[in-house]
């Protein structure tokens, strides 16, 4: 049997995984390259591991939600990603989904707290 800590850990990872795409989409209104996005998310206290983020960017591009271009102007070439039109559309709707879910969840949790005071 797994300990409470282990179970909690894996549940938290799962919970966070569901928010990954929304997190990334929200940060790509303006173009970013892989590592700049890692840093940006770290600053905002929503860190995503580099090994998870880089492949995710590529998958989102393949789905048509992101556009990419190689910028060879700088000292070293970098691949920049930004929301496509389809990506913007998806982002707006996904944001609404998230707000609905979080509102309903908040209501659920508050209700429970009211009924059973510690």
């Amino acid at each position: 049997m797994d300990s409470v800590g282990e179970i909690l850990g894996s549940l938290a990872v799962e919970l966070k995984r569901g928010t990954l795409v929304l997190t990334v989409l929200s940060q790509l209104i303006t173009k970013e390259y892989g590592y700049s996005l890692v840093q940006k998310l770290e600053e905002k206290k929503v860190p995503i591991e580099a090994g998870t983020l880089y492949p995710l960017l590529r998958r989102l591009e393949k789905q048509g939600l992101l556009q990419s271009e190689w910028d060879t102007g700088e000292s070293r070439p970098r691949k920049f990603y930004v929301l496509s039109e389809k990506g913007k559309d998806v982002y707006i709707q996904l944001k609404d989904e998230w707000r609905t879910i979080s509102k309903q969840m908040e209501i659920l949790l508050r209700e429970e707290e009211k009924n059973e005071p510690d």
Partner: peptide, 17 residues
């Protein structure tokens, strides 16, 4: 088909890190 591109991108990302 994605080897070259992923390789280049990964290299750039590692250099950035």
């Amino acid at each position: 088909e994605i080897r070259e591109d992923v390789g280049l991108e990964l290299n750039a990302n590692i250099m950035d890190m």
